[in-house]
């Protein structure tokens, strides 16, 4: 297959998502591509929240330095920083629900043009649970979805309406995919940018949702 590589890879999507973050923000990053966003914040003063009870999440520990009492929300061993603060789960979700976290960047199975988000269950398949995703999308200042534009069958994941059970209703502000950046606006989605080597026509063709 000699299909031309179009658009952004995982790291480029993460780098584009990092541009969304503003100096001084407290941010929650989801599992997968969103985790990579931490590698691209540059000089910006960004504090990462881990919803199991930590602000100021550091990188993975060196081999041999793992601490079973220090993990992130993905249950991975991590480290603390000079600025780190620990707190309990009720306090953690208090700051999430209370709108103190400026942004959450998370993955999705489907996003709809009205900002609906589905990323926690597929009926008939194994359901693991929503974890903190429903609290995050309902509570944080800005919800940014980072995901592949289409599924493995080539079908759009950016839809007129979600087919899967929702994680949140009308919660998504911006969608960053391998093909471009879209904002949820009145009446549908607005194209903010096309990815490298992707034309607007190609982005539109890969999108089921209404583009205004």
């Amino acid at each position: 297959m000699a299909e031309q590589i179009k658009g952004w890879d995982r790291n480029q999507m993460a780098a584009r998502a990092a541009e969304e973050l503003q100096d001084g923000w407290y941010v929650n990053l989801g599992i997968g591509i969103p985790t990579l966003v931490a590698n691209y914040v540059g000089d910006k003063d960004i504090t990462l929240q881990s919803e199991n009870g930590m602000l100021g999440m550091g990188p993975f520990p060196f081999e041999g330095d793992e601490d079973p009492d220090l993990i992130n929300a993905g249950k991975q061993t991590i480290t603390e920083l000079g600025r780190t603060a620990y707190f309990d789960s009720a306090t953690s979700f208090g700051m999430i629900r209370g709108g103190k976290i400026a942004a959450a960047i998370l993955g999705a199975m489907e996003v709809a043009e009205n900002g609906d988000l589905a990323n926690w269950m597929i009926p008939g398949k194994l359901v693991k649970g929503m974890g903190g995703a429903m609290d995050l999308v309902a509570g944080v200042g800005r919800v940014i979805v980072v995901m592949d534009h289409t599924n493995k069958h080539g079908e759009s994941k950016v839809l007129k309406s979600c087919t899967l059970p929702l994680t949140g209703k009308g919660v998504v502000d911006r969608i960053i995919t391998n093909l471009g950046v879209l904002d949820v606006v009145e009446g549908g989605l607005r194209i903010v940018a096309c990815a490298d080597n992707v034309t607007e026509a190609e982005l539109r063709a890969a999108t089921e949702a209404t583009i205004v």
Binding site: E51, D88, S89, A90, S92, F93, G94, I96, R97, M130, G131, G132, A133, M134, D135, A138, G139, G168, K169
Partner: peptide, 25 residues
């Protein structure tokens, strides 16, 4: 939802029988 579960415990312990949240609407 994780925060709802944490708050249900906290609230129960604080004598608060119910609370309203946006989570899950």
């Amino acid at each position: 939802p994780q925060g709802t579960l944490a708050e249900r415990m906290r609230a129960g312990g604080c004598g608060i029988p119910g609370f309203y949240t946006k989570t899950g609407v």
